[in-house]
Amino acid sequence: MKPAPFAYHDPRSIEEVLDLLASLDNARLLAGGQSLMPMLNMRVAFPDHLIDLNRVEGLTGIMEEGGSIRIGAMTRQRDIEESEVIRARLPLLAEALSHVGHRQTRNRGTIGGSLCNLDPSAELVAVATALDAVLEVQGSAGIRELSIHDFPVGFMTPALAPEEMLTAIRLPVPPAGHGTAFTEFARRHGDYAIVSAAVLLVLEGSRIARASLTLGGVGAGPLRLRTAEAMLVGGAPSEATFGAAAAECAGIEAMSDPQAPAWYRRRLSAVLTRRALETAAARAAV
């Protein structure tokens, strides 16, 4: 339960981090440490070099710009959860954060760390997927933008080259008349969810103009329910419509693990999706 030896690097700027990433072998970035530190302590991870991001300038902050909210990768989860801008403009994110670990771990945990760790049941990954997040990735060649949908390339594996880092995440603010909801089932509050559902509905009059449904925890990465979304658009926000969309979850591919078998995950998915749809519709209506 003690980490293996590593060389510690404590850069102050993004440029320094990129130089280190380009020159060192088997290096890992240390963000809030709420997932990587346990992995180091248990020696599941044993990098030769640890690059600490906690003193790097320019990686934190929440800013509204051009219809999106931009959040620095090292912004603490607790700061996001308590941000007035987030609560007003992206309540889905604040709601999901209340399920991420505990207040105490959110004091250290960061949004970028959670996204890059890409745990299959991570709440922030599901929300970023539901909101069509755009990621800013920096490497020696400059900054590139990446859709969250192209980010997971396998189990806990983000589409980042060894010499790249995630610097910020941009979340488009949904139009007026929208409602969102996040529901999850975990054995205990604060545990990783067995299944979570993140929903966004945009209503126009008595019709659904846009729907976004994402499940977390069912497979290696977040699962966007595109077929169910297509069924919802144009329909009325009614029990029957939501029931039919949720029933789509019976056909999804879900994983089995010691926590829960696949059939149970499918069943949870349908129930949580329906509940999230009902809540989102009620919130959109007010």
Partner: peptide
């Protein structure tokens, strides 16, 4: 002033 887990921090930090 904020509660944190001391096993998830390095002394150097």
């Amino acid at each position: 002033g904020q509660p944190v887990r001391a096993c998830l921090l390095f002394a150097v930090q």
